[in-house]
Simulated assay, not measured.
Amino acid sequence: MSPALQRIEQTREALIGALAERNWETISELDVACRACVDDVLSEAPVDEQALRENLESLLAVYKQLLDVAMGERQAIVNEMTQINQAQNATKVYHLFG
């Protein structure tokens, strides 16, 4: 396995770990590193296409999972903000008539 493919695999594994911990700062850093790894592997001389395909498909699956989790987190924040706004409005009404 080429060094670039190994870096992709290592970065993918690190992304999985950071995602499990919901460590968004580390995920952001690993995303940048992952892009560099992909650029490196695509600029190299032809490599084992099957290994490349498998690594990139595995990486794609991690990114899909990452997007699903991020959208879920975003929706949770939206729901929480909605509840806060409703509570603030209820407080205003209570003070208005109280």
Rank of each mutant, 00 (worst) to 15 (best):
M1T: 14
M1Q: 14
M1D: 14
S2M: 10
S2R: 11
P3N: 11
A4V: 05
L5G: 08
L5Y: 05
L5K: 05
R7D: 09
R7W: 04
I8L: 12
I8M: 09
I8N: 06
E9I: 02
T11D: 09
T11R: 09
T11G: 03
R12T: 01
R12W: 00
E13D: 10
A14Y: 15
A14T: 08
L15Q: 08
L15S: 03
L15D: 01
L15N: 01
L15A: 00
I16G: 04
I16P: 00
I16F: 04
G17I: 00
G17W: 00
G17Q: 03
A18D: 03
L19Y: 05
L19C: 05
A20Y: 01
E21F: 05
E21W: 07
E21A: 12
E21N: 09
R22K: 10
R22C: 07
R22E: 15
N23E: 04
N23T: 02
N23A: 09
W24P: 12
W24I: 15
T26P: 01
T26K: 12
T26D: 07
T26M: 12
I27K: 01
S28D: 13
S28H: 03
E29C: 03
E29I: 01
L30R: 03
L30A: 00
L30K: 02
D31K: 01
D31F: 05
V32Y: 02
A33G: 02
A33R: 07
A33S: 09
C34F: 06
C34I: 02
C34D: 03
R35H: 07
A36G: 05
C37L: 00
C37N: 06
C37W: 01
V38C: 00
D39F: 06
D39E: 12
D40H: 03
D40Q: 04
V41E: 01
V41G: 01
V41M: 05
L42E: 07
L42Q: 11
L42H: 08
L42R: 08
S43M: 08
S43W: 02
E44P: 09
E44Y: 00
E44C: 09
P46R: 08
P46F: 09
P46M: 07
P46L: 10
V47R: 12
V47S: 12
V47I: 13
D48M: 08
E49S: 15
E49L: 13
E49Y: 08
E49V: 14
Q50K: 15
Q50A: 14
A51Q: 12
A51P: 02
L52K: 13
L52I: 03
R53K: 15
R53F: 14
R53V: 11
R53S: 13
E54G: 13
E54V: 15
N55T: 13
N55M: 11
N55G: 15
L56V: 11
E57Y: 08
S58C: 13
L60P: 04
A61P: 07
V62R: 00
Y63F: 13
Y63N: 09
Y63L: 09
K64Q: 11
Q65E: 11
Q65S: 06
Q65G: 04
Q65D: 06
L66P: 07
L66E: 06
L66K: 04
L67C: 14
L67Q: 13
L67D: 13
L67T: 12
D68V: 12
D68F: 10
D68N: 12
V69P: 03
V69D: 10
A70W: 03
A70K: 12
M71S: 07
M71V: 15
M71A: 10
M71C: 08
M71Q: 15
G72D: 10
G72L: 13
G72K: 10
